[in-house]
């Protein structure tokens, strides 16, 4: 079941802009619609809609969430196989393999190259056979500094 847009939609097109599969279309200021064949249930539309006009695949309403609150993938290096499944799974291309090898052989490991582009869908984490990517709330800067 794909996501659906209810009559609460005011046609602001925020969902259409963020949809990575081009599944949402509609005229400006008019109710938008989702092409069920193209929808990949990433949930990005639901997280950006100021009108709470999105229903998820199970029919539950979605709530808008501040972008800084969206979950982001964190790599558990010891578990990673460097198989690149996560990079392929990412619908927005925000993960990449490191060009310069890090501290485990000469494998290239994934990292969040474009954190701003990440839509927090968690597909990378879901598809990773080794559970080497964990979706976490980003740690706020000041906290990170405080933690050293």
């Amino acid at each position: 079941m794909p996501y659906t847009i209810t009559e609460k939609c005011n046609g602001c097109a925020a969902c259409a802009r963020i949809c990575p599969s081009g599944a949402i279309s509609g005229e400006k200021k008019k109710r938008h619609a989702i092409n069920g064949y193209l929808c990949i249930e990433c949930g990005a539309c639901g997280r950006v809609c100021p009108q709470s006009a999105l229903l998820d695949a199970g029919g539950s309403g979605c709530e808008m969430l501040k972008r800084s609150e969206w979950l982001k993938p964190e790599l558990v290096m010891e578990a990673c196989m460097a198989c690149s499944i996560c990079v392929d799974a990412c619908p927005v291309g925000c993960l990449a393999l490191s060009d310069v090898p890090r501290d485990k052989g000469v494998d290239a490991y994934p990292y969040l190259k474009d954190a701003k582009a990440c839509i927090g869908c968690g597909f990378c984490s879901q598809e990773c056979p080794a559970d080497a990517l964990i979706m976490q709330k980003p740690v706020k800067k000041e906290k990170a500094v405080a933690a050293g």
């Binding site: 460097a82 198989c83 090898p101 494998d107």
Partner: peptide
């Protein structure tokens, strides 16, 4: 001469480079 290993999609081994 290898700079970095190359893994095909879904390969944990990485015979390429």
């Amino acid at each position: 001469t290898e700079i970095v290993k190359y893994h095909c999609y879904s390969c944990p081994l990485g015979c390429g480079g």
